[in-house]
């Protein structure tokens, strides 16, 4: 799956568009503990989390993550404005969905995205 195709999944709102929409997603990772993300996720991954803190963008940028999906986010206004601003500045693709982490990962998997520890 290409990172640009995430925008076209149902129930996804794109907050910051990917800079390279044709880039193939290298794997999927989910955690809400950013220290775990720093230890395990890697370049080109899609990261699914319900955290909305600006550090999400800092960590994604640090690791060269292809994009971040913020889950359980029924109201985009509840995301810290600094998070979205920082994602724009650092060109980190940012998506939001009201769906749970489980559901969105199941959809990504059906679209062919593998976990970082498989495939």
């Amino acid at each position: 799956m290409k990172i640009g195709e995430v925008s076209r999944l149902p129930d996804i709102t794109t907050l910051v568009l990917p800079r390279t929409p044709e880039q193939e997603i290298s794997g999927g990772y989910a955690s809400d503990l950013l220290s775990c993300v720093m230890a395990r996720a890697g370049a080109g991954n899609i990261w699914v989390t319900l955290q909305t803190h600006p550090n999400v963008v800092a960590v994604a940028s640090l690791l060269d993550i292809a994009g971040v999906i913020i889950t359980e986010c029924a109201d985009i206004a509840k995301i810290d404005a600094a998070t979205i601003e920082k994602a724009r500045e650092e060109s980190v693709a940012l998506f939001a969905t009201p769906l749970t982490t489980f559901t969105i990962i199941a959809r990504l998997a059906r679209a062919g995205v593998l976990g970082i520890d498989e495939g």
């Binding site: 950013l34 955290q51 550090n55 960590v59």
Partner: peptide
Amino acid sequence: RPAFSLLANLGIIPP
């Protein structure tokens, strides 16, 4: 600590 901590949960000290 591995949980409930600034470093574990947010990875880096927020600037």
